[in-house]
Write a protein that binds this DNA or RNA. Sequence first.
DNA 1: ACTACTATTTGGAACGTTCCTATTGTAATC
DNA 2: GATTACAATAGGAACGTTCCAAATAGTAGT
Lengths: 343, 343
Amino acid sequence: MTARRPTILDVAKAAGVSKSTVSLVVRGSPTVKAETAKQVRDAMASTGYVYNRAAANLRKSSVGLIGLVINDLRTPFITEFATSVQMTLSAQGYATVIANSDEDGALQAQRVSAMIEHGVSALLITPSYGQEADSFDQIARAGIPCLQALRQGDPRCDLFPFASFDYAQGGVLATQHLIAQGARTIAFVGGLSHRAVTAERMSGYLATLSEARRTPVSFVGGVTRGFGAEIAATICADHPEIDAVLCFNDQVAQGMLSGFMRLGRAVGTDVRIVGFDGMEDRDQTVPGLSAAFCDVARFGRDCAAILLDWLETGEHPSPLRRAPVSLLARGSSLGPIPEETSK
Amino acid sequence: MTARRPTILDVAKAAGVSKSTVSLVVRGSPTVKAETAKQVRDAMASTGYVYNRAAANLRKSSVGLIGLVINDLRTPFITEFATSVQMTLSAQGYATVIANSDEDGALQAQRVSAMIEHGVSALLITPSYGQEADSFDQIARAGIPCLQALRQGDPRCDLFPFASFDYAQGGVLATQHLIAQGARTIAFVGGLSHRAVTAERMSGYLATLSEARRTPVSFVGGVTRGFGAEIAATICADHPEIDAVLCFNDQVAQGMLSGFMRLGRAVGTDVRIVGFDGMEDRDQTVPGLSAAFCDVARFGRDCAAILLDWLETGEHPSPLRRAPVSLLARGSSLGPIPEETSK
DNA sequence: ACTACTATTTGGAACGTTCCTATTGTAATC
DNA sequence: GATTACAATAGGAACGTTCCAAATAGTAGT
């Protein structure tokens, strides 16, 4: 327990070579003779040697470690993104270290510090809301590449480029779709009023309605299934004229779907619903949930690629990137509930 | 870009003090005079100093860093667990670093290596299936505390204690509940046959049925909503006698709920469903989903506490811990569908 | 046998901290 | 005014690696 961990020197002594040779073996250098390498490896095994990366990092400049700081570990959208990023980086030989800021600006700053101090080569961050300036100042000071994804915590795009989805376009597509399906009064439900994501998703909706000379109705204030169910009840009670809803996300949409069904309104015929994100198992609700689809797995790969390119070429990427959003039309917005037997 | 990062020596020179003093300031020592400390801090700011933890770790033994290696970042159950662990550790002043093995034994070994080499003080791991022996040998070699959670990858409980839920008890509770609700033929649906978790969850079901002299029926082979929906169809077509199902997890249960509804069987009356985990928004399906409830947030806190205790006292924790599973009864298993006017 | 290579191995000198043991400055005590 | 005690600061030696220049061993050509 208290016994000092063996070092490269102990291994060298056991193998009867110099520390330099052991170091070369550790790093898999081709210059060391196969026979010698084997002896060294045996000595490592018998001494119980553990590589000390801290010591190595003291000399080496780069570590091949990339930090991923996410705002919430419980949102499927975010974890799907994180998984995609991590797997892409892993495939390119970079290790990913993930930290969760849990929507807390102070915690985020702390985790960013820790990562920088541990010597990450680059950062990918989905900023939390709050006093996140600290985090970015720190990153700027450290001078490492950092890409903001999905949310923009710091507007200095010359330092921290921003990648997200083209949510406004998604809003347009979804609203156009609902209009094409014959909807007359279309509401926007969900989101939090002070957040950029909400504004973006809603803007496409507003623009499209305005163009079609329709009056918008919105119910903002929540992002959960519960909120969706609640607003479904409100709509049934007070706004019977609403015959279509574009939801802020899939959760709200599913809540509305359940809520409408509970209250006896037929989703797909009486009222049409389109969600946002397209993360949920769409086919497993009755009816299937339509959505403005954000291909987050692909987005994750793209973000990882942008960061790696930046890291390897040293060239600053373009300050803004918007991934396209497409429309997935399912039963919840397509006339009568389709019989699933057709496919 | 190429400019060398400033070190404490640069700061010391700028502040007109010695490196030792700067080091003390960095670590917040109370022995240094307030005035001096301020000068040093100013110097740090003006030089753009970044603390080099790798260098510090070379001297210090402990780092206050705890590694969390999880098998899947996309399972809500796991991410909820990770969040809980992380927040508990954070509250105790430990930083958590998370890595995703994505159910890949080799990747897990790699991430475990990386964490050990980075000097984590302890590890908490939800092992992936596959050749995970490497990982544990490595941990044993490093001689750091390691707790296995939710899954047991290595049976050496004298080295790696194991904490999980009492799934068998959950199976018993759920099955007893279904019997008490008047179910006659109860099926078990979901899970993968070669996994311990499936066996455990099913064992409580089997034992209870055996005691009640009923014949078990099980449909194993999947853990998703899709699988649940599929089996719901199978049951409607070929096993009309089945009037209750205990599902491997909530996803399967929700799939079955949708599936049964789609096929016109009234969930809660014609057929009763109980899920497992209790993670989903239970009240937001119609009807609400009953479940054998695993309080994963609490479990995460407990795991973190076990690990911290081990770390701080040096005393090996008990090799096995099973957290209790309780029953949450909702509409899906409770007679007529509540909140719905019987028509 | 000697030279000119090449392949392999080697011993210091970093790297940026922390720890330990001085050293200095200041105030209190004799 | 000298001594003591204490607070504050300073300087050198680690820590375990990598990097570099240099040494050695081995091989082929003359």
